[in-house]
Design a binder for these strands. Sequence first.
DNA 1: TAGATTGTTAATCGATTAACAATC
DNA 2: TAGATTGTTAATCGATTAACAATC
Lengths: 212, 212
Amino acid sequence: MKKKKVPLATIPRLSLYYRALMERSDTQLISSQELAGLSGTSAAQVRKDLAYFGQFGAAGKGYRADFLKSSISRILGVDKDWSVALVGIGNLGSALLSYKGFLRQGFHIVAAFDNDVEKIGKNFAGIVIQDIAALEDEIRRKKIKMAVVTVSQEAAQEVTDKLVKYGVKAILNFAPLRPGAPKGVEVHSIDLSIELEKLAFFLSQRTKSRGQ
Amino acid sequence: MKKKKVPLATIPRLSLYYRALMERSDTQLISSQELAGLSGTSAAQVRKDLAYFGQFGAAGKGYRADFLKSSISRILGVDKDWSVALVGIGNLGSALLSYKGFLRQGFHIVAAFDNDVEKIGKNFAGIVIQDIAALEDEIRRKKIKMAVVTVSQEAAQEVTDKLVKYGVKAILNFAPLRPGAPKGVEVHSIDLSIELEKLAFFLSQRTKSRGQ
DNA sequence: TAGATTGTTAATCGATTAACAATC
DNA sequence: TAGATTGTTAATCGATTAACAATC
């Protein structure tokens, strides 16, 4: 039994393939070439990415849309529903609470927390905001494994530590720092400042190389 | 004159170094080792990243915090102010309008657009929402080169095309697709669904590898 | 001078691309 | 059978890590 390590970059591409397949009727055949076109990569890349997880196609024909779709959904784990905790109900947090796009993907925000007494008890988009003091109880009772953190930079490490302590294994962090977490806990950060700075870099380079 | 190509991954690390240096007093010396510790990478990586842009340190001593800080800020282009257009004032768009963190970095949202007559003319966090029909005029008049797009998946390509046509060169896109754009225009996407699916993948793998 | 640390070159690692035999 | 396309191996490319002479 051979197992090659899956490159990190393969995973988000699987999401893109999955999305592209959504537009396809179930019994339709799709080639790696076609799928590559729809997701902005190459045919070789598509075949390589899929090959890490098994054989899903038929030589000479291509991939059956429904089979590939359900296979990728199983690989990504989006065939199941996921309960998600949201911590920090500021501007960004409340925007995410109201965002219905997650639901379609099987991600359910089942608990939301803040430490602001003004917000606690209020109903945001169908969820009652709870005191952060209730975090342990809720996480454990609902067996929540996934959390989205939209607290301030100052609070982010503390919140992360608590989430990890209570059993959360995967965190999407929006605070502008990389919270430390023990091995076995996956912390991904979306850092808006860094994204803007990357764009600023490219704009600056552009101007420089054009000699202005 | 040698010029080695800068790896894409170097840029966000420069942002992290810059952030770490913010906490340092100006005349303090900092070693690559120390800077690496503060930004979660290795000393060799720090020296390599910086070396793409010149020589900033002194052998045997380290880097002077103030000189390195101002050098990185010039490389990233955050020594200048940037005018940013925001298109799409839904949940996420209004959250970004209210977010003050950008300002500190020199990013100013100077114009905001939506196509919803309910929103047009309203004042959000000090900015009056304009009809998308005013996009061309505003972009050209204010010479805006950077935009943040928080419109629906359906509208994203059309909005991107317009922005590009009117002179925008760098776009941060939050819609769940990768808008096409001509060479020379930088489009970066933050895709919340993909981030959640990546986490779902890791949670699923974890469970599988533990034989449950 | 001895110790510390840079900038740079060489070695390693990992990911993408190309090529092609096997198969439908 | 001829044409198309997969799965996989080999070649290439790019990025990270290690090593070390030069320098403070």
